[in-house]
Design a protein around this nucleic acid. Sequence first.
RNA 1: GGACGUUUAGCUCAGUUGGUUAGAGCGUUCGAUUCACAUUCGAAAGGUCGCAGGUUCGAAUCCUGCAACGUCCACCA
Length: 743
Amino acid sequence: TIVTQIRKMGSSCDWSREKYTLDEERNLAVNEMFRMMLEDGIIERGYRVVNWDPVFKTTLSDDEVVAQETTAQLLTFTYDADFPISIATTRAETKFGDVAVAVHPDDKRYKKYVGKTFEPVFCGKKLLIKIVADEAVDPNFGTGAVGVTPAHSMIDADIASRHNLESIQVIDQNAHMMNAGVSYNGLTTIEARKKIETELKKNGLLQKSETVPQNIPTAERGGGLVEQLPMRQWFIRVNKPFRLRQATLKKWKKGDRVTLKELMKEAVASTQIRILPNQFEKIYFHWIDHLRDWCISRQIWFGHRIPVWYRGEEIKFSIESPGAEWEQDPDTLDTWFSSGMWTFSTLGWPEQTQELKTYHPTAVLETGYDIIFFWVARMILMTVYALGEIPFHDVYLHGMVRDEQGRKMSKSLGNALDPLDLIPKYGTDAVRLSLLIGTTPGQDLKLSEEKIAGFRNFTNKLWNIGRFILMQIESSGTADTKTIADKWILARLTEVTASVTKKLEQYEFSSAGEELRDFTWSDLADWYLEIAKVEKGKADILKQILETILKLWHPFMPFITEQLRAMAEFSEPLIIAPWPLVKKEHAPKEFEKLRTLVSDMRRFRAEQKIEPAKRIRFSLCADQLLARFVTENIEWIKRLANAETIDLVNQIPGNWNSCATANGIIGLDLKQSADKSEHVKTERELKEITDYIQSLEQKLANQEFVSKAPARIIDGIKEKLTDAEVKRSALAKRIKLLNGQAE
RNA sequence: GGACGUUUAGCUCAGUUGGUUAGAGCGUUCGAUUCACAUUCGAAAGGUCGCAGGUUCGAAUCCUGCAACGUCCACCA
C-alpha cells in the first residue's frame, strides 16, 4: 500500500534501486555492523534495568516510551514501626525491592543514620536497608529520604552502583509480584499497591496519602504500562570511547579515541550537516546530551536476528551456526538499527561499490520532525561510525499533516485522509499542491478537502491555459515587433523564474508555489492572455511562455505539466528537461500603469452600477506620457474595460461623472445621474485622502525623520504626497460637480 | 520542571535585513454566461497585527514581561 501511495503521488524515485530493510543484502550489512561494534566494544551485553512492555513482552528503547499524564497517590510512611526514617512513593509495590534509603549528604536530619543498616519488616517481608548519602536526592521534596529500588528504577540503579548495593527484582515480566512474600507474590502491581496502602494504614505506619499529578511511562505502540526491570540485554554504549577505524568528519584521524555521542554532535555542530528549520538543531543537541545507552535487543519475531551464539556463558559472533552445541540468541534487533544504516546499506556496503562512491553522502534527507531521534539521529550515528563521513548534507523536516481541526489523523477517529482516496477525486497534482502551498517547514499543516478542491481549480486553470495557448500557437502567427504587453510578460517571466528558482534552492516550496500560481493565474491568464485575444501574432512568445511555466510547474504538478508538454510536442520529457535559464530583467513600469488604469475604469463602472455587458464611452485626462501609452494600446484597453471609446481630453466634460485616480481623471458618459450613495462615498474618500495627506505632511515636517531617514524613503513619501494631492483636488472637483447635479 | 513553536481579515496562512495606506487563497456581498476555463470572469466589504511596557524619526517586524494554545524533553521519589 505504501509503495502504491508513493508511486501514485508521483514521487520521482529511482525505482530500480528499491530495497527492503529485511532482505538478504541488508541483513549482510546489519551483521557486519554488529560485528564491528562488538569488536570495538561499543556493543555490549549486560544485566541492566530496561524498559519492558508487559503487553507485547519486549524491551523498548527510551525513545519508544511515551510519558502519559495521570494522577497518583503519593504515600508517606515508614517500612515498620522501628524504622527511624519516613519515605514517600507512588509505587509502594516496588518497596519490596528496596535495599537502601538515600538522603542528601548535607541533610542534618539524617546525618546520624548514614552508613547504618536496618532490617525492617515491610508488609511481611524482611528487608535489608542501608542508609546512604547521595547528591541526587532533593532534600526539599517529600521527607528528603528516598527508598532505593535498584531493580525497578534506572536512577535508583545509578545510585546503587555508586554505593555498591545489590538489586532485588520484585516485579516479573507479566507485571506480577515476585520476591514479595507469600501474601503478595502473584498479585498485579496495582493490586499489590492497594493492598500495601491498606496494610500500612491498619498498622498505623501511613502518615500521609495525597493525590499528585504524575507522568507514567507507556509503550509507544501498544500503549501498555511500561515497567522498568533488570534483564540481560544487548546495548550500544554511547559514552564509551573507542578507537576510530578511519579518519572521521574532518576532525579525527584513524586511531583517535572518541565516543558515539561525540561523533553525533560533531556532525551537526561542525555544520557538515544542516538541520532545517534550524530550531531542530537545538532539539537534536539536547537529545544527545541526555542520551543513555541504546538497548537494541527486542523479544519480537519480526526483525534481523542478533548474530551471536551461546554455549553456557560463552558468547560467539557468527552468522552461521558454529556447531550443534551452540544456541543462537532468540532476540532480534531494534528496527532502527537497520533503518539507521539506510543511506549506505542500500548502496552495497560493506562492499566498496561504485554506487557508494557515487551517491554517498546524499544531498538532502526529507522527513517528518517526529522521527528526528528514531531515524535521523540514528542514521548519523551509524554512518559516521561506519564510514567516517556524514550521510547527508541537509535534513529538511516537514510538519505533520493534521485534520481541519488540527487533530492528529488516526484510524480510531476516522479523520485520516488517504491519498489513494483523494487522487481519483481531485487529481494527484491538486493533492500535491495542497501539501506544498500554504505550509511552513517544521510546522504542522491542517488539511481539508476544501483546500484540495481549491487547488483542483487551479490545476484545471493551468490545463485550460495550456489548451488556449496551443490553439493560439496554431492559429496566430508571429508579429515583427513586441508590444508593451509582450515586453512586460517576458520580463515578468524571467523575474518569476529567477525568484522561484532561488526559493526552491532555499527550500521555500510554499512561497515558490504561491508566486508561480499568482503569476500564472493573474499576470498570465487574466491579463496577458486576454490581451492576446486582441493583439494577435504572439505564437512564438506564447510558446516560450508555455514551455517555461511547464518546466517551473513540473516539480509541483508532474502529471498535468507532462501531459501538456506532450500535447505541445516540446521535445524532451520535463523530468529530464533543463531548468529554464535565469536572467536578470525588470518588468517595464508602463504596463503596470495601464493595468492600474483598466482596473480603475472597471471599478468606476461597477460603482456607477453599469451593467458589465454594456459598452460605454470613457474620457481620460492624463499626462502626455500615459496618453501616448493609452493610444498605443487602445484596442486591448477598450476591450478589457469594455469601453466603446476612450477619448483623451484636457478636461472631463462638465456633465460627465468623473473619478480621480493615480493615473489621472477618468470620465464617464452617463445620462443617468449618480445615486446618493456615490455622494456619500466620495465624501468619505475625500476625508480619507485628506487624513492621509496630513499624515504624510507631518512626517515631512518632522525634523528628526527628515534628517535620519534614508533619502529613498523620503523621496517615496514626497512622490506619494504629490499623487495624493492630485487625487484630492479631483475628488473636491467631483463633489462640486455632484452638488451641482443635485441642484 | 526545562526548552521550543504558534497567536495577523470569518477560516487557512504569507509578511525577507524595522521604512509607502499590512497581503494571498477560501468564505461572504454585488454583478456577469455563446467567444480556453462557472473547477470561470469583474468588483466590493472585511484587520485595536494576543496583551502590557520599552528601544527608535519610524515597530506586525527588535527588546522585556505576561497570557492562551500546541509540541518535544525530563524517573520530584
